[in-house]
């Protein structure tokens, strides 16, 4: 590791003499810096998206996994008996931390948004709801359904998996899309830097010929180009990353109601991730330019 660090340090420090053999080419230089900067800016958002959707998937999973609902539909005269039977079953089910029948007022409050405040709940065959809090390990939903079917015919267990799964899945996909975007951004950066490096190498065929005439090895010539492009990409990406981070920070603060949209940011250790973006850009530039230089130098034989 220290050997690698030393190599990196030597690479960055460089050899002032060696550097100058490649003419400072304004256009490809600016192109490289700009491409790296723009891509880094985008990468910050892709990263923010990935991290935010990761958090979201976890939150949905956590909250919903802990609670479920039992719905009892029965003739009014049997309702009380069946509710009591269901509660008994739930009390003896491993994995159920707490089971509580909702009161009339609570059920009324749940229905209020749809039917208004004056709903005569007592006279309507509204199902009774029982709220279940699970323990860490959760209960065996299939087993519970079997027991309920035998003892409480009107009971329907809703463990939220039906609608929790797609949400979790969507969040998971979103996170994956974020990572795929980062990969695509890295690949695009590599492509653009390869094009810029090829242009610079082609424009400097004469320089390469002179260097060869005086006995420069391919590795020396390649290194001069690679160093130049790597440092430019690093610098451009640094600026792009800082700009991206500022833009993310300036997003309105996360609010309960905002949910996903305003949660798009970095939290805690998440702030360490964007540091990797300029390093990734530099690495991409290093390998892209290296490959371009090796190819050009062997073609110019």
């Amino acid at each position: 590791m220290s050997a690698l660090l030393q190599k990196v340090r030597a690479f960055v420090a460089g050899d002032a003499q060696a550097d100058r053999v490649v003419p400072p080419s304004g256009f490809t230089a600016r192109l490289t810096s700009f491409a790296a900067g723009a891509m880094a800016f985008l990468a910050v958002f892709a990263l923010a998206l990935s991290l935010a959707s990761g958090r979201l998937a976890q939150r949905w999973g956590d909250e919903l996994a802990r609670s479920s609902t039992l719905r009892i539909s029965a003739p009014v005269e049997q309702m009380a008996a069946q509710t009591a039977a269901a509660l008994r079953v739930l009390e003896t089910t491993p994995g159920v931390a707490e089971a509580r029948a909702l009161s009339g007022e609570e059920q009324g409050a749940l229905l209020e948004p749809w039917f208004g405040p004056d709903l005569p709940l007592e006279t309507l065959p509204v199902p009774q709801l029982i709220e279940i809090q699970e323990t860490e390990d959760g209960y065996d939903a299939a087993g519970l359904r079997l027991r309920l079917a035998a003892e409480v015919p009107g009971a329907v267990l809703d463990d939220h998996t039906r609608w929790r799964k797609p949400l979790e899945q969507a969040a998971g996909r979103l996170r994956m899309l974020g990572w795929v975007s980062i990969l695509l951004i890295a690949a695009t950066t590599g492509t653009m830097i390869t094009l810029a490096a090829n242009a610079a190498l082609a424009a400097n065929a004469q320089v390469i010929a002179v260097l060869r005439l005086v006995g420069a090895q391919d590795s020396y010539i390649a290194h001069a180009f690679v160093r130049r492009f790597t440092l430019r990409a690093l610098l451009g990406a640094l600026v792009g990353t800082v700009a991206g981070l500022l833009a993310v920070m300036l997003l309105p603060a996360a609010q309960e109601a905002g949910g996903f949209l305003t949660g798009l940011g970095f939290q805690g250790l998440g702030w360490a991730w964007p540091v990797l973006i300029p390093l990734l850009a530099a690495m991409v530039a290093y390998f892209a330019t290296g490959a371009a230089a090796r190819r050009t130098l062997s073609e110019l034989d």
Partner: peptide, 20 residues
């Protein structure tokens, strides 16, 4: 005679030493 046109002539003369 081919030179690196962006470098002063003294640096060009030194080039064989530089690259080795």
């Amino acid at each position: 005679c081919q030179f690196l046109d962006h470098l002063p002539i003294a640096d060009n003369v030194m080039l064989p030493l530089t690259v080795s």
